[in-house]
Every structure is written in structure tokens, then in C-alpha cells.
Design a protein around this nucleic acid. Sequence first.
DNA 1: CTGAAAGCGCTTACAG
DNA 2: CTGAAAGCGCTTACAG
Lengths: 372, 372
Amino acid sequence: MPASACVNSTRSPTIGYMVVSVESVAERAGVSVSTVSRALRSVPGVSMETRKRVQAVADELGYAASPAASRLATGRTMTVGIVVPVLAKWYFGKVVGEATHALREAGFDVLLYELATPGQRQRFFATVQLYGRTDGVIIIALQPSREELESLASQGQAVALLGAESSAAGSVSVDNVAAGLAAVRHLLNLGHKRIAFVGIRDEEGSNLGGVPPLQRLRGYREAMAEAALAQEDVLEQFDENSVAGGAAAISRLLVLKQPPTAAFVASDEMAFGVLKVLRQTGLAVPRDFSVLGFDNHELCDVVGLTTMDHEVAEQGQDVARLLLDILHGGHPAVLSRSARLVVRETTGPPRALRTIPTGPDSPHSAEHFGDL
Amino acid sequence: MPASACVNSTRSPTIGYMVVSVESVAERAGVSVSTVSRALRSVPGVSMETRKRVQAVADELGYAASPAASRLATGRTMTVGIVVPVLAKWYFGKVVGEATHALREAGFDVLLYELATPGQRQRFFATVQLYGRTDGVIIIALQPSREELESLASQGQAVALLGAESSAAGSVSVDNVAAGLAAVRHLLNLGHKRIAFVGIRDEEGSNLGGVPPLQRLRGYREAMAEAALAQEDVLEQFDENSVAGGAAAISRLLVLKQPPTAAFVASDEMAFGVLKVLRQTGLAVPRDFSVLGFDNHELCDVVGLTTMDHEVAEQGQDVARLLLDILHGGHPAVLSRSARLVVRETTGPPRALRTIPTGPDSPHSAEHFGDL
DNA sequence: CTGAAAGCGCTTACAG
DNA sequence: CTGAAAGCGCTTACAG
């Protein structure tokens, strides 16, 4: 190769693209590869002048260090994994999008792991997946067991959880018990007595639920107990977290001998299904039935769904920041957020109270709209 | 190290997790590292017996080859990048989820690139991002320029496009012109004459639009021309691809001196916004106004939105398969899908035709429901 | 501030 | 079928 050929352009017979290595840059800049490496990574101990010259040559040649080589040499991947049950749901897409943004901002690549089935989850944790691939991992809406967390640790992973808790990892979660309580209190204040809970069922060990849905149920039960209302199993219906699941659950509730007059639904998507069935059944909302969802899904506004907002975008940013802190040597932190009620148009007093505003059966009638 | 210590357990002072290398496996299995490497990757030239023994030892030790080292040695990353404008929209989440699934199934990792702003897009293409990081990239809803594609090629990337076309890459797209035509014909057949188009505006070069929305507009225009209907600029309204954007667009249409009686909306999310405003304005759908969307968003069913389905899940699988084909040495293929009308409850004959079913002004009245 | 050299952990001709 | 050795392209003590 002639001395003037500074770019070490290797053309493989099959591939055929150009590779620029440290050596090319070093050669043209008239320094050693060590200096190039140091100059380009802003490592102290390089004169300003040299740094600039090297940078200029690198830019000119379009040089970028081979990630594989850097990783092998440093042991750091500058990559974070995100584990999520499913992407095509608004909550998960939002959270992953926000986390990804924060991570890339901080110079990390993000590797996506969609664990939609119990089998996928099992395989993920049963084999060495992350070692050498990522420096840390964000796990969304999955409660890893102690063994699973240990496996991740043995693979050198920092871990941050969203919607799950553990003493061994950073975590951000929402106070779902309090949120459930607040949601049901809103319905109680409106005068409802037969209030149903529509929850998320973990389909044969599927990962779509996690802990939060269970906490929302606890909040519901606490609120009912607080109001000294009988709790009937039949008023708690569980199904998959989808429009269809919500539709199925409300259908089961409507055929009860004593159907409820309101429902607290553990996710907005299920609540959309509830609304759909209500509409098809000819029941007016909220005149005949009140519906309260959870998430503050971006489409709530379209159908006027009253819901619990838990700052989904912020959750994604938080969990990314938490992981970055750990990666930067900090201790795993635990963050908790609270949800707030967003009243729209699907909740109101029960029918009975509308016709007999201050009858003896409605002691709360004066304060029905207290929180509207 | 005593001979019995077969696991090369390096404990770094700061990190402190265990690393199992080829050498550990080789030592314990009583073979060379070359043999371990070959045995574990099913490379021909290893006896069945040796292969099994090595495999057993590897399993026992929990060995997994260091990706960085493999990549450096082979030059292949076994990783694919997915570039998407935004994850938190149903269409993109769905497509990315499906593609990711197919890719991981084929043994590839997936790296996520969310390019939400023109600045991010520009930066992505202006610098060497993918070289050594991925073997190929799937680009969704972005039309890369020739230079951008050349840059990717020079970084050794195979590329597959979704919702864009190029002779230099594999691509899957939908015949959006035909879809737009079919959508508007449906409205024409119902008897509408003043039909609006609500389209996606590329916010100052944002990437959220791409080519498909423009093709839908072309389909609209062709259908209007076909019906010999005057095309007024004012009937074409563009806004951002969101509920708010749709709401803004329909608001502008409703204040026209001669407002339309129907709208073909380039995305379901915008159509949801249209529906919302219509409801707030007190206009009944479809009695007073017909709305036809695009995507067959999973929530269409909830509000009864008539729309164009373009098999979103399949698009994601297709584009992944296309890229895998190229990665396996195949030629870049071009796939085209067609959309189909899904009639629900937001489209019907215009008000005039309902009151005067067979008046002189409604020549199509007999066939209004022909395609329902 | 700079450079020569070892080493990161694999894969793969090459030789046997 | 198996092994010794070179090489992938960086980074980083170490020496100057």
C-alpha cells in the first residue's frame, strides 16, 4: 500500500464496504493509535492541538471506533436492555419510547426484548442472554423472582424495575393501592353502592399483569370496606388486558341478578371494552352506568373516559434515570409515584339518585359532586 | 490456579461477577478452544461425541460466548436496527413488535432507534451510527434519500424499508393510492358529494408522515376526479397525526360556508379526533357526517369507526423477513400489500339523501348500501 | 504529552 | 476430527 493511502480500505469480496480503523487515522494524523484513542474519547492527557488534529482527521475519514473492539477492550457495552411484555399497547409503547429517549441521550444503545408469553419469559431467564450484550436492563411490568435477579446480577447487569419491587434492584412504581382507593371513593361519593371491579387476569402465567393490577384490587377492597359495603366475589371480574377482555368482563356483570351501577376498571383499554358493550346494550353512560378506568390513555379524551392518571411518560424517564444512576456507580433507588383522578364524562350518580335526589336511600346525595 | 478449578472465575474488584470463557470450557472438557468454538456453533468437523461432551460442559458452566469477541472475530453482529419515528403510536408499536418477534426468532438482537424529530433524523444519518453495531436495519415510515441509503451501505448495512420505496433496498408497502380510491368511492357510493380529506402534515420536516399519507391524498383526488366532482383546496386539511390534529382539521372544515358531509381521514388516530369534535358539536355520526379512517386501529371497534385495514401486523413480519432474506444472501425484494375497507358505523348516506331517498339530486340512491 | 505492547475473548485458515 | 497460532480493532497500564 502506498504511503499516501491513508485510509485502510479493506474490501472484502462478499461485503464490499469501507472500513476505517484507528490505524488509518493515526497514520494520517501522524500520531500513534494510543493517542488517537485517547484524543477521540476526551481522555485527559492529550494536548489540545493534537486532540484537534486527530478529531479533524477522524471526521474527514468518517471514523467511528468499532463497538465490538471497544467492548472487548473495556468490558462495557454502553448498551441497555429493555424487557417488556408487549410493545403494541399504549402504556408499554409510551414507557419504552420515553426510556429509550433518555437512554440514547445518555449515550446508550437500547436492545429490545419482548417477552409476550410465559415460554419466552422462561427462556429469557433460563439462559445467559444479557452477559456481554448489555450493561444493565430495565424490566417493565414483570416481577422477577430472586433467582432471576441473581442470574441477572451474575451476568453483570444493573437492573431497574418498573411496576415491580425488589430490594436487589432500583425500581419505580405507582402507589396503586392508594390509586384504587381514590378511584372507588370517587364512585362512592357519587352515591354508588354496587361497584364492580374489572381486573387484569394473568393468562396462565402470561406476563401482562404484574403486581400493579393486584394492588388496584386491594385499593378497591379497602374502599368498599371503608364504606362498609358488602364485598361479593361476583362483583370482581377478571379478564385479559384488552378491549375484548373488558367487554367480556362487563358482559358477565350485566347479567347478574343484582348488577352493579358502576365499575372501576384496572386499565383503560379494558374500560374501552366496557364502554363498547354498554353502548351496544343500550345503557347510557353515566346515566345508567358509571365507568372509571386506569392509565389516562391518550384516547380517553375521545370517549370521555374518567380515569386515573399515573404519569406514564414520567415513569419511563424515571426508570431510565434510575438505571443510569446505578450504571454511574450510584445505589439502586426506589421511586414511588402517585396517581390522580381525571374526571371526564363516564362517571356520575347512579340512576336512582338522579330521580330521587334527596331520598332516604341516598344519604350522600348532597356531596355527590364534591370531587367533580 | 489448581487443576480442579475449571471455571476461570475472574472477580474484578469493582464489578464482581463471574465470567466463563472458552478456555474454562476447553480445559474442563479436555479439548482445545478451537474445538469448543466449533462444537458449540454446530460447525461441521467435530465428532458427535466431542460435541456432546463440550455442550454438556458448557451447559454446566453456564457458558455463553462473549458477543463482543465473536463480533470482532467474525465481523457479524447478529443484530438488526429498527428505526421508527415514535413508538407510542399503535401502528408503530404493532409493527415494531411484530418485526422484533420475527427477528429474535431468527437469532438476531434488535436495537431500537426512535427518530422523533428532524434533528434526530439528521444526526442519525450524518454520523456513523450503525457500523459494527448492526448487520442491517429496518426503516419505518421514513423515506431515506439516496445519500442516506449510500451512507448505510457504506456502513455495511442491509436495509429494508416499510412505507417507503427505493431501488437500493428491500421494501414493503401498501398500495395507498388504491386504498384512498377505495375509501373515497365508498363515500361517493353512499351519495356524498362534498367529501373532505384530512391528511397528515409533516411538521416542519418531522418524520411522522412519510410517503403513504401523500398517496392516500392522491387516491382521494383520483376518486373525486373520477366522480367529476370539483376539488377545492379548502376541502383538503392537513394537521399532525394525532387526535388533536384530527380535531383541529375537522374544526376548520366545519366552519366552511359549504361544509363537507363526509371526510376521509388519513389515520385512525386523527379520525378519533374528528369523531370527538363532531360529538362535541352535536353532529350525529353518520346521520349528519360520515367519517372514514385509515389503519384499522385496535380501538376502531370501540367507537365503530369505518376504516381501511392494511394488515399492520403482517407488514411488520414482512419487512423483517425481507431483511433476513437479504442478510442470508438474497436479493432485496419489493413487496406490496393492498388495503381493504372495513365498514362499521361511522359512514352512511348524507342527510339530504335520508330525507329525500330518491330525489333528482341523488342518482346513486339505489346503490348507497351496495358495499356495506 | 506520547508511544510500544499486551490483552480483551473469540473464530478460522492452516497444518497435522 | 483436532490443535496451535494469528488476527479481529480497540484500550490501557507502563515506560519514557
